[in-house]
Write a protein that binds this DNA or RNA. Structure first.
Length: 272
DNA sequence: GTCCAGGCATGCA
DNA sequence: TGCATGCATGGA
């Protein structure tokens, strides 16, 4: 991966296996919008970003070198060799055709708090409505970045809300989970950085103690927000996929189960 | 009107 | 330990 500053932009070359449509709109992150010109706009880590592709170049528009080096490189996981990972995963018959068809899905390294909060909202919900709720959450309680963009609100900010405040965002029965989650993270009763430092099993055990967090939400948070590529979330779509693996997951998934999962999830939503 | 969505807590056996 | 049930909301 190489990056250089051109005017106010950062131009990135040498990144393989990154399809913006597949990665930013595949149900792992809920805040990216596709613009009419094909670029994507969104907010993560407190930064607004507009990104698009020109041939083999990715243009990070109006992006400082500081935010690129310190945040976006990790967010898009630009130094991970996804091409190599995909080659390994293609030893599996179903993934072989699936990766060819949807090549370029990456796992984004989202922030623990945003991922955990988002996937609590996601339960028994569809992706379109998850986005709607999160948009309302951010525009109401996030920090205004200008241009209609808002940060994902901090736990400290949301800790000041009541259950009724969460309900009025349309979160339904999840409101009580969010209310307690925000207060417990803000108070330090739940320490997300500490959870991130644990191994997978211990981190999952800690997340499962949280009110409103079950095995599916825990695994999504671990994969999308805590950097555990071995986490393998199984939702209603993945349950259908699992019928293709009656003997368990193949050996070639080992260590990157979550990446395999994201391809299979996408395949299921388009084919089952 | 009915069904479903990146499920979970609760109660009960 | 496993299984049934209720739960909020909006789009199809």
């Amino acid at each position: 991966m190489h990056s250089k500053t051109v005017g106010n932009d950062i131009e990135v070359t040498g990144v393989e296996c990154l399809d913006l449509d597949l990665t930013l709109d595949c149900g792992q992150a809920f805040r990216w919008k596709r613009n009419d010109d094909g670029s994507y706009s969104g907010v993560a880590g407190g930064y607004f970003l507009n990104i698009h592709r020109e041939g083999n170049k990715f243009i990070f528009k109006n992006t400082t070198k500081d935010s690129f080096d310190n945040f976006w490189v990790n967010y898009f996981d630009l130094n991970k060799d996804y091409k190599k990972i995909c080659e390994t995963l293609k030893q599996d018959k179903l993934l072989c055709s699936t990766i060819d068809e949807y090549y370029g899905i990456r796992i984004l390294n989202q922030e623990p708090w945003e991922a955990l909060c988002s996937f609590v909202i996601s339960q028994q919900n569809n992706i379109k409505r998850i986005k709607l709720i999160i948009e309302r959450l951010c525009s109401t309680y996030g920090e205004d970045l200008g241009g209609g963009s808002y940060t994902f609100p901090s736990a400290e900010r949301l800790a000041r809300l009541t259950v009724e405040d969460f309900e009025s965002l349309g979160t339904g029965y999840r409101a009580k989970y969010l209310e307690r989650l925000a207060k417990d993270v803000a108070s330090g009763k739940i320490d997300l950085q500490k959870i991130k430092s644990l191994d997978l099993e211990d981190a999952r055990r800690e997340l499962l103690k949280i009110y409103g967090v079950g095995i599916k939400v825990a695994n999504c948070a671990l994969l999308f927000g805590f950097g555990f590529y071995s986490a393998f979330p199984v939702d209603v779509w993945m349950k259908r996929v699992m019928e293709y693996y009656p003997d368990g997951l193949p050996e070639c998934f080992k260590g990157v189960e979550g990446i395999a999962q994201q391809y299979l999830f996408h395949w299921a939503r388009n084919n089952l």
